[in-house]
Design a protein around this nucleic acid. Structure first.
Ligand code: MN
Ligand code: MN
Ligand code: MN
Ligand code: MN
Lengths: 221, 221
DNA sequence: ATTAAATTTTAGATTAATCTAAAAAAATAT
DNA sequence: ATATTTTTTTAGATTAATCTAAAATTTAAT
């Protein structure tokens, strides 16, 4: 029904749409699909014919309910497979994205449901991203960026908003893993960098650039 | 490097070649790929350019060493995923082939090796088919068809040579699963059908058609 | 050895997904 | 309000995989 390629477009439109909560531009899609704007225009016309997106020439694109349902299924599969790769096969969190990009297109409802059960119905993937359920419903999550946390607050790390292997490896080396406790000790005004203490009592310096990409939940200390 | 489609051609040429141990005809490939002979001719020319097959117009096709290595990797993945689906996710043996047809094309050496380890380095898939190792080496297996077994002999079921869901479901209903013990009690000459006793002492009637597709290993009683 | 039948290959089209270059529309700047 | 720049769409090609119909080759049968 929906090809590998179409699924990738829908997933990308979903992500961009969630970020801005408005119509998505042709160029934005082209950037993430690693194609040219001309190719995107063509595909949007085609997705529109299939009722997967609402698309008016020059006016950007949005997913229809149907399109969003397809996108959420793909995202569900991507994140469940990432959990499998990390929890069951022992991959590191920076190694699983590319493989999950392939596995997310395997077409079998039965497989997804059984995998979900096998993994113990996880609510979040190895990067802290929420996993939609069978009906496409995301678990509620209210997190903040570490960069918004005030001095003295104690938080626990629940996710990352940047998924590049280099970033994830850097975090792992620092001891910054999902679930770790962080206390903000100092905010250096001139560059907004932070001095923090982790659960293991080690002290670290965190640049604003890094802090912006760490998702945390405050915790009573 | 090798596309989904090319991998399927190689796998099919491997199978046909193993059966007849000689050149494979264009029509035979067309039948299994569910395409037309014209399409196959085209693809054979292309695979030949890529050094994956030896192909002379009108003379049939054979895999090169390279082509065979690729085919064996695909077969290895197919069978490992089938073990995963049955052993870990609880699928029945008649439900896994179609899903494995998709999973076998996932491209990650690391994934295959870790999956193999996770499964405990199985030597046979849920249908008794041998799983090639990383180097493409198949475990040795010397089996016979149940139809070749003489009255009085005791055997253990080690595989099937027919993989259709209906056949597999029929066997399951009869209690004929991999590893089950079978004693041939009677051979009915007129239609070569068999009366057998299973390990659980139940008696069954097995047609010649079915017996031909059951792979067994004789066992000292 | 011819002829007939079956198999296989080529020729020419089609579909999906992509591209470059040019045209059209929208957004921005003077 | 016009002109300039940016964005988006169309037009025309390309590549992979497929098809049908026709031509070529091989195999089988007189
Ligand atoms: Mn990912
Ligand atoms: Mn993830
Ligand atoms: Mn199979
Ligand atoms: Mn099998």
């Amino acid at each position: 029904m929906t090809s590998f390629t179409e699924e990738n477009y829908l997933k990308i439109i979903y992500k961009l749409s969630a970020e801005t909560d408005s119509e998505v531009s042709t160029n934005a899609v082209a950037e993430l699909t690693l194609t040219k704007a001309a190719s995107v225009s063509d595909m949007l016309r085609k997705l529109s014919e299939k009722q997967l997106v609402n698309y008016q020439k020059y006016q950007g694109v949005r997913l229809t309910e149907l399109g969003e349902a397809v996108a959420l299924k793909v995202i569900r599969k991507h994140r469940l497979w990432e959990v499998f790769l990390v929890e069951k096969l022992g991959f590191n969190w920076d190694e699983v994205h590319e493989i999950a990009e392939q596995l997310e297109h395997i077409d079998s409802e039965e497989l997804v449901e059984r995998l979900d059960e096998f993994l113990g119905f996880p609510k979040f993937d190895p990067h802290g991203d929420p996993i939609p359920d069978t009906f496409g419903i995301m678990p509620e999550l209210r997190y903040q960026n570490l960069s918004e946390i005030t001095v003295g607050q104690s938080v626990v790390m629940v996710g990352v908003s940047e998924h590049s292997a280099t970033f994830l490896q850097y975090l792992a080396k620092m001891g910054l893993t999902l679930g770790c406790h962080i206390v903000v000790k100092e905010l250096n005004d001139f560059d907004k960098s932070l001095n923090v203490k982790l659960g293991d009592l080690s002290n670290h310096f965190i640049s604003h650039e890094v802090a912006k990409n760490l998702l945390v939940k405050s915790v009573k200390n």
